[in-house]
Write a protein that binds this DNA or RNA. Structure first.
Lengths: 234, 234
DNA sequence: ACGTTTTCTCAGGAAACGTTCAGCCGGAGC
DNA sequence: GCTCCGGCTGAACGTTTCCTGAGAAAACGT
């Protein structure tokens, strides 16, 4: 029922920066994953052998060995663990080429929603995991993650990338109150320095595009945050 | 059965200000938690190692080391103790960024109800603790903590943040008489300078919004305080 | 290189909220 | 029955929070 109370899968997170490592593992744990972390390639291989994760989140740049090398070792181990790479946005060509061996990749600085979406998509593909639906629905509002498309009352709605990510975050957390800080942390890149004002703007855009008809789904809770839900009368 | 007679969990409270430390630990003990306190980072790590708390309440600003550093040491210890940070409201950007690795955080000056709510929410998430229900019910009055919503006789009721906190405090203490001073201490921030008159106002607001129908749940005990309960065979 | 889309900031205005206070009410005690 | 006292509530105030439109800068597509 509640995404937060179920272990979706076991993940191995590999990054040498403690901040990124903790940011990711805390957030993934909150989303219901079981998480083991490693700080370099040696540790990564060691833990992968021991805990047999369902998926590995792997930074390309590691102090002791290349991320691709680590990925190779993991493949040699069998068990075909899928890999999601983390890479700098300005990666050089040879690195981009290497990414082809990955099941997916995310560029730094990322947003948590981005990473979560990729992880879920890969798990869906490799495990045929139907517990992770690609289509979300609340009332007559529908969102298809794979098709990257949204409908309200059957009519398609055009959203910008940020608007889409925000709506997706709302729909994954239907019925749960989200503070502006929480939204900022999940939908915007982790290096974003701005304040919560931008969240207000985007909520305003979203309402104009997908919440002009009754019943209203996006509700403001003054001094607390926002929540997406059907009004419950019963 | 009584929340006061059961040890809910073992907590470690870390703050260098003795006032805050005592305020928190006394209140948490009264709520059924087992509490150990520490005044700085060194002590915190030491006690965490010895008593293995289920959760750590950690001030970001400590005399010897940064709260995030302490949190890092705690994670290295394994056992994945969740951390609730305490921070000043006007925290600078880099500190806000650090808060993303926290399981939750509360800004100073806080109210005791706020801290308790966050602690319970985190314990619910990390331990799947169903002894700590997110939904409270007294008669036909219902309150959902997560959804931040209230119903009376099935009909949703809109409450301001203070009204919600006050009702929550009443419902957690159903059947127990609460003095105005007690209510002030728990629901309002600890630096609030006003008098108990504001409690009378808010009880009045609450009655108007959630206690207009029979049977009345909020009762005045002249010269003593208030109590929320079903009338017993009156 | 050009126009378009997207993202973010800012500021005005509107609404909700917190707090105080004064006048009223009703029960308790004399 | 009268007086006190504690409690109730409506009004008023300043403050906070939120919404939205306008605009600048960056990214994007052609």
């Amino acid at each position: 029922m509640n995404v937060l109370e179920r272990v979706e899968a076991r993940l191995l997170v590999v990054d040498d920066e403690p901040n990124i490592r903790e940011l990711l593992s805390a957030s993934l744990r909150r989303s219901g994953f079981e998480v083991v972390t490693a700080a370099d390639g040696r540790e990564a291989v060691h833990f992968a052998e021991r805990v047999r994760p369902d998926l590995v989140v792997l930074d390309v740049m590691l102090p002791d060995m290349d991320g691709f090398t680590v990925a190779g070792r993991l493949r040699e181990m069998g068990g075909q663990m899928p890999v999601v790479f983390l890479t700098a946005r300005d990666a050089t060509d040879d690195k981009v080429a290497g990414l082809r061996v990955a099941d997916d990749y995310v560029t730094k600085p990322f947003s948590l929603e981005e990473v979560l979406a990729r992880i879920r998509a890969v798990l869906r593909r490799t495990r045929g995991d139907l517990d992770l639906p690609s289509r979300l629905q609340v009332g007559d509002l529908e969102l298809d993650e794979e098709a990257h498309q949204v409908w309200r009352s059957g009519a398609p709605v055009r959203l910008s990338p940020t608007e889409f990510k925000l709506l997706h975050y709302f729909m994954v957390n239907t019925g749960r109150v989200l503070s502006k800080a929480q939204i900022l942390d999940h939908v915007w890149n982790y290096d974003f320095g701005g304040d919560a004002g931008v969240v207000e703007s985007y909520v305003s855009y979203l309402r104009r595009k997908v919440d002009i008809t009754e019943p209203r789904l996006i509700h403001t809770l003054r001094g607390v945050g926002y929540v997406l839900r059907l009004p419950r009368g019963d």
